[in-house]
């Protein structure tokens, strides 16, 4: 039998995860809703999350690359549509997206997806909680897959190195060589994961027992 101490510790951890979920949701929401002059406060909180994430063996290189690409694309579009005067607005939009994404990145580092699923099952059906937690656990895997597919295609001669991508003519190659196979992988994987879950009795009980490391 599990000791009372272990049970309490487990409930305490789940409570912390629930609080983290609420915190992350509010923080991400505020990134879009807060006034411009409040963004600095949000940025400081996000900076603390980044530091905590790095201490939990997280890597920000993916985040930095994502935002660099996002910034370049957004600024180019703003420049083309609105002209030079609105470039600062474009940068602000990217900054808000960054503030919205960082809390989610931090959450995936500090909480195991199955624990998030367990907590979400308090407020939603187990099936839906599983879908959310499975999607979260898929993110790091897909991140690694995208990186490997990108590297493989560069080796095959695709014009998608950062140098090549300075030329907008090569952007379609990135979609064709990296995004398309990634989407194919994602579709296949989600289908096969669903099959794998069904084969392992998923959804046979309305109230499953959740795994915990001893």
């Amino acid at each position: 039998m599990m000791t009372l101490h272990k049970k309490l510790k487990h409930h305490y951890k789940n409570l912390l995860i629930a609080l983290a979920l609420v915190f992350v949701t509010v923080l991400s929401g505020l990134a879009f809703m807060a006034a411009d002059d409040s963004l600095m406060c949000l940025a400081i909180i996000n900076l603390l999350l980044i530091v905590h994430g790095i201490l939990n063996q997280g890597s920000i290189s993916g985040l930095l690359k994502f935002f660099s690409v996002q910034l370049v694309l957004t600024l180019v579009l703003y420049w083309l549509i609105h002209g030079e005067a609105k470039l600062l607005d474009g940068a602000l939009v990217v900054f808000r997206i960054m503030l919205a994404v960082i809390p989610g990145w931090w959450l995936t580092l500090v909480c195991e997806p199955q624990r998030i699923g367990e907590v979400l099952a308090w407020i939603m059906p187990h099936k839906w909680a599983f879908v959310v937690s499975a999607s979260i656990s898929l993110l790091p895997f897909m991140g690694r897959e995208v990186k490997e597919i990108y590297q493989i295609q560069i080796m095959r001669g695709a014009r998608i190195t950062p140098k090549h991508l300075r030329n907008p003519k090569n952007w379609s190659e990135l979609i064709y060589c990296v995004l398309l196979p990634t989407l194919i992988q994602l579709l296949k994987l989600s289908q096969q994961m669903a099959t794998s879950a069904t084969n392992r009795h998923f959804s046979q009980r309305t109230k499953p027992v959740y795994w915990r490391n001893p």
Partner: peptide, 17 residues
């Protein structure tokens, strides 16, 4: 489906409660 080996093997048992 899961990220650690214990959780992966346990998945079916979780569903069987």
């Amino acid at each position: 489906i899961r990220q650690t080996i214990g959780a992966e093997v346990a998945f079916a048992l979780e569903n069987l409660a």
